[in-house]
Design a protein around this nucleic acid. Structure first.
Lengths: 235, 235
DNA sequence: GGGCCCAGGATTGACAGACAATTCTACAGG
DNA sequence: CCTGTAGAATTGTCTGTCAATCCTGGGCCC
């Protein structure tokens, strides 16, 4: 089996760069949900040919980040409240599995790395930028998904995290939520340090379920705000 | 929110057909794992242009069915024993979640449908063709993934089932395995009929874990056989 | 004013051809 | 037997073309 630390270099086609940058642009909300990503616009933006753009779009379509309407082209995927509920349901079990795997199989170095990222996260002050927080949390997951020694759970969780990154950025930067998040994550780190597979499972699962609660509350508030705005506009 | 029973018709681009047929060809082993899928060959085979082929390949790459090596093109993905273990680990929790969701949220019609597919499966005789069995089992999953009311678990499980369909076909058609499979599936159906969410979770999880045991045994046998063949060849 | 229809422009979906860069293949030479 | 290299084949990318479809805006009728 090839080692993950393999020194093999592989050329990176232009296509990959476009995939990565476009993915990143969507995740960091530089394109708004529902926005139309027309061929020509992306060609100009990235300075590549239509073929490359279309291939990248197909890949992100399969990842669920882009929704393609026949004869109308690609749009940035939009996550409804109902879908968000489903995403959190799946995330709960996948993160639990990842946490369990990490507790069982991560190296001592990886556990130390996880704690280091946790300490960094715990040291942030409430006013931090959404994207900074999201980036930190992302690093936490990167360590976790690497250490759980299961490329499939890593891939699928990665997709889910990207899919609802917008909502996650919102909940993370909620000032009342952040201290709670830090406590939950500490539980994960501590369970992992004890090599407690069931504890890690529970802590991860609990963390996602708490996040889901906050996310759905925010979604409801937004919906209420939107309907109130609609009423005002109708006056 | 758009109803799943929407009568809306959407045009099907050529691209989609190629995606579906190519996916199907890989799943049903009409292309062997590791086989090289060169542009020109696929162009001739499907009678479409390179652009369409390349877009379809990109989609199946994201689904994990195709592995792309830079400057060497796409290859049918190959599942190692280590990866198979990981796939079964993820499948176990996702199927458990799907089963639980089905027990909670499926309609009475869907539950009846699940039983109907089960009865059909239970009525097969041991000698049946691998692909026939795989198709039946697939219909079982189709009902389950529709009734669990979670599009994300459905999508991810769908990908995983495709990803190791070859191995599944092998284990399913193992004559000693089939009766056991049927018993396990009956447990799922019965739990669902009782609306027993925990029971459905356990039954689904157990089913996957049993399948994993058989699959890994077969993989080991194949490995042993291969090494024996290598010895013979070396004589 | 509101609704309907239609022409024109813009965009998507698909095709063919071209070309540099890379990889594979096979053959000759040490 | 190993090595090196020339030529063929393939990939990655770009450009241009064209039909089909969608959106827009204006004109027309009620």
């Amino acid at each position: 089996m090839p080692d993950d630390l393999s020194l093999r270099v592989t050329p990176q086609p232009v296509r990959r760069q476009v995939e990565e940058r476009l993915r990143d642009a969507i995740i960091t909300s530089r394109f708004a949900p529902g926005e139309h990503l027309s061929d020509r616009m992306l060609c100009d933006l990235f300075g590549v040919s239509r073929g490359v753009i279309r291939e990248a779009v197909r890949l992100l379509e399969a990842e669920g980040l882009i929704h393609v309407v026949p004869n109308r082209g690609p749009f940035v995927a939009y996550l409804s409240a109902a879908e968000a509920t489903q995403v959190y349901e799946v995330r709960a079990v996948l993160e639990a599995l990842a946490g369990q795997g990490f507790a069982e199989r991560a190296s001592a170095e990886e556990i130390a790395e996880l704690r280091a990222v946790y300490e960094e996260l715990a040291a942030t002050r409430p006013g931090s930028d959404r994207l900074v927080l999201l980036g930190l949390k992302r690093r936490f997951y990167d360590v976790m998904l690497r250490g759980c020694r299961n490329a499939y759970v890593a891939r699928m969780l990665d997709q889910l995290l990207n899919r609802n990154s917008q909502l996650r950025a919102t909940t993370l930067s909620d000032p009342t939520r952040l201290p709670q998040t830090i406590i939950e994550i500490r539980r994960i780190v501590e369970a992992v340090e004890r090599r407690d597979r069931d504890g890690a499972w529970e802590a991860c699962r609990d963390h996602v379920m708490q996040a889901a609660r906050v996310a759905l509350r925010i979604l409801n508030e937004q919906a209420a705000m939107a309907s109130r705005a609609a009423e005002t506009a109708a006056d």
